[in-house]
Design a protein around this nucleic acid. Sequence first.
DNA 1: AATCCCATAATGATGCATCAAATATCAAAA
DNA 2: TTTTGATATTTGATGCATCATTATGGGATT
Lengths: 228, 228
Amino acid sequence: MSERLLAGVVTPIARQSYLGELTYERLKEIIVSGAFPPNEKLTVRSVAAALGVSTTPARDAINRLLSEGALINEGPKTVVLPSLTFEALDEITATRLALEGLAAERSVLAVAPADIAVLEQMQVAINAGLDAADYREVLKVNREFHFLIYRMSGWPRLVAMIESLWLRVGPSFNELYPDFATNRRGVANHLLAMQGLRAKDGAKVRSAMEQDIRDGYVRLKNMIRARR
Amino acid sequence: MSERLLAGVVTPIARQSYLGELTYERLKEIIVSGAFPPNEKLTVRSVAAALGVSTTPARDAINRLLSEGALINEGPKTVVLPSLTFEALDEITATRLALEGLAAERSVLAVAPADIAVLEQMQVAINAGLDAADYREVLKVNREFHFLIYRMSGWPRLVAMIESLWLRVGPSFNELYPDFATNRRGVANHLLAMQGLRAKDGAKVRSAMEQDIRDGYVRLKNMIRARR
DNA sequence: AATCCCATAATGATGCATCAAATATCAAAA
DNA sequence: TTTTGATATTTGATGCATCATTATGGGATT
């Protein structure tokens, strides 16, 4: 009976985090935050030692990031963080436009007033972060802003694919500072997106998010050009 | 000097396939071919025993398929092959339209006459398979037809994402027989795609492939409806 | 007949040893 | 100085034992 009583009321508790999961999350955080230089070798044992786990969880984490494309096999026993090339940036940007545009367009189907309120608060936090030049905070909230909208699509597999794309541009995005912390072009896009959500205008949300992606693309492209 | 001598003459030998890789490929084949019933439990040890390997490669293969979404965690220690629901089909179809449409549109940028000749031969094989009601052959060549076009996009990460989507509808597609083996609607789409490739008309290739996806969607939807 | 409880078996995660393969090192040769 | 080749070291893959957790089945209870 308790089953019926609880059905729909509670969700199953999140499965406990296993060491492999924690190692994966930690390693991902290190990679996305830009703390790990591109083209530097990663080994199972070095990761295991650095994170204080045995080889099995370390190997699991590396393999998982490998299958997501966040790391690549540069050789038979050589795993490195890929550096973003022009070609990769073009490909990933086009894919992002397709998938994030799709998710953005669908977001209006399930958006609630409470969601928009949260987005507004996030935008306040982004503006504050820009004022304080706290780029880490800006990036973090910006990411939450985007994914809150994408999750409104109600399509978790789509959101997961988008996440894997962000994982590939994330490391390079961190090199954009202080460009990102001082450039406020993204603010206008976010405001347009929120307007579209209020009006339940899917096309408008899509175009706003697409423009945000294109703005980021231009900056990343300039960065890559300067790097060479 | 031997470097210069051998340059361009020989290609590096393919790296040996590891057990984990072989196990993954084999398990994937079993799943895509529809030989494994949905909602049936998969365990590390059962896969290891069935394929004659130890638990490590079996676990690697299961985890990899899990991360691709080809298998899902139904519970803490319960891995099953997901059955395709209406919701999942809608989501995956929309994502396929976005990504395969993108790849199809770009295919004209790099298409060579030799590619079109190969596609024509594939279509001959598909027609022969339809005549012989050899659905397994039809499915196999149909898949090769699609991916040859997608690979022309020159975007390997995009192709990899499309592959993971096919992995999710593949098992159900096998239940479509003999519907698929007798229905020739896909032939017209393929012919249109080849026309578009010859004319280097990206929009035409895209619309042909999109129509092919939509036709498959309708049939899958009917199948799911009948299954319940 | 349906539900609950508990003992038992099964399972995934983890740690670790081993081995073949790849890399790094370095001295000898060109 | 550069290249080559032998040697030592490092590394990923694999197999397997162990352990805490979970699934399972059957009997007891309502």
